[in-house]
Computed example of a mutant assay.
Amino acid sequence: MHSKPESRQISALDGFSLSSTHYSAEGEAQGNLLIAGATGVPQRFYQRIALYAASQGLNVMTLDYRGIGLSRPARLKDFKMHYLDWARLDLAAAVALLAKQDLPLYVLGHSFGGHAFGLLPNHHHVSRFAVCGTGAGWHGWMPWRESLKVRMMWHLILPVLTRIKGYSPWSKLGIGEDLPQDVFYQWRAWCQYPHYFFDNPDTQDLLDCYYKVRTPSLFINATDDLWAMPASRDAFIRAYANAPIHTLDIESQGTPIGHMGYFRAQHQDLWQPIVQWLKQGSPASIGASRLQQYAPGEFNKAQLLLPNLAL
């Protein structure tokens, strides 16, 4: 039987108060798992997979980044922060807390979680890392209909609403939690580039952070994830040049997966192999899928991207 999830306030590295939820492992704990959520997705969305991982012997922590969910300030208008604070200050504090315990530490990410891992100052504490639906964010990696929709959102609809509100009202469009305006403007700027912030002149120094990652990593992308198709993932994760990498491309079987389905109940068949890989490091194919394995340095050599898109 699952123990009741426990809500706790934790402090980010700069002292900002964050809401977190803790799920105790059934039986003797075999490790700790931190779930690093997507942009604008509250921690409650990951409750089902957190309960599943707890049933498999892992203590699990979820959290809401500053400005989101239960970590949202009373007044979001003109709330000041940097998008990368979610990784460098918020997730890093959770890693530091869990690393104090004498158990292996794993991280499971979603979308932004794949960006965040390379930005952590303490990723070396993590034994294995898996992420679903991470990508470079550039509209050019998307099918043309989705690309057109995204460009209209970035350049026509949301800039007007954000200027009026003082924050980005994503909830009004039914696509997630409202975002602090700094997150919206920085995210939009980076999504103009094929390799996200690695191509931005102001943030190219971030490559050095990713080159330091040595953690075995599994990157899972559904072929019907229009926001993060496998080519988009590959364009971003080339920066994890010195980590042993597995990539897994999943073909949906009937029910679409999209960008959010990885963590929905109808796709819980994905969870067992993901948790198995985190705990044991043994990759497994999932349904109609394509698994590739690369030693450190091999992934970049294997990719055949257009020359003008090279890092």
Rank of each mutant, 00 (worst) to 15 (best):
L13R: 00
S282T: 13
D90G: 09
K279E: 12
K100I: 11
K165A: 11
Q266R: 11
H267R: 08
H123R: 05
L105H: 04
A74E: 13
L309E: 15
A96Y: 12
Q181V: 08
Q268P: 13
P194G: 02
Q280N: 14
R48F: 09
A99Y: 01
A241N: 07
Q181T: 11
V213Q: 04
S289Q: 00
G176F: 04
K279I: 05
A295N: 12
Y210M: 03
T62E: 00
D64R: 02
D208I: 09
V60K: 00
A29H: 03
P256C: 14
G137I: 02
R233C: 13
L248M: 03
Q276P: 06
S171H: 08
G258I: 04
F184G: 01
D14H: 09
G31V: 03
L58D: 01
F198G: 00
H155M: 10
R145Y: 08
A228D: 11
K100G: 10
R72V: 03
S20Q: 05
D78K: 10
I10R: 00
P296A: 10
D225V: 01
A92Y: 05
E298V: 08
A50L: 09
K100V: 09
A74F: 11
P159H: 05
S17Q: 15
M1E: 10
R128D: 05
I35V: 07
L63G: 03
H195I: 05
G133Y: 00
P283S: 04
H155A: 12
L89I: 06
L161P: 00
L179H: 03
L156S: 14
A310S: 14
P121R: 01
C191S: 12
Y262K: 09
Y185S: 10
A243C: 14
A231E: 14
K4G: 14
K172I: 12
S24F: 13
H139G: 15
Y23F: 07
G258H: 04
G15V: 06
L306R: 12
G281F: 05
N221D: 15
E146R: 04
L207A: 08
L91C: 07
L206V: 11
S232W: 05
S24M: 08
M61G: 02
I35W: 03
K77P: 00
L156Y: 15
E28G: 12
G57M: 06
Q56P: 00
S289E: 05
L84V: 10
L161I: 08
R188G: 15
I157H: 10
D224L: 06
L108Q: 03
L226Y: 13
T203S: 05
R72Q: 08
I245A: 01
E26T: 15
R72F: 09
A265D: 14
A29F: 04
R145T: 15
P180V: 03
A288R: 07
V275R: 09
L33R: 02
L309P: 04
W86E: 02
A87F: 03
S217L: 15
E177W: 14
A36M: 13
G37F: 02
D199P: 11
V41Y: 03
H2T: 14
L119R: 07
K149Q: 13
D202Q: 10
F197R: 04
N200F: 07
R66F: 09
S111C: 12
M81A: 00
N242T: 05
T247H: 02
K172R: 10
G140I: 02
I237K: 00
D182C: 07
L33G: 02
H139I: 13
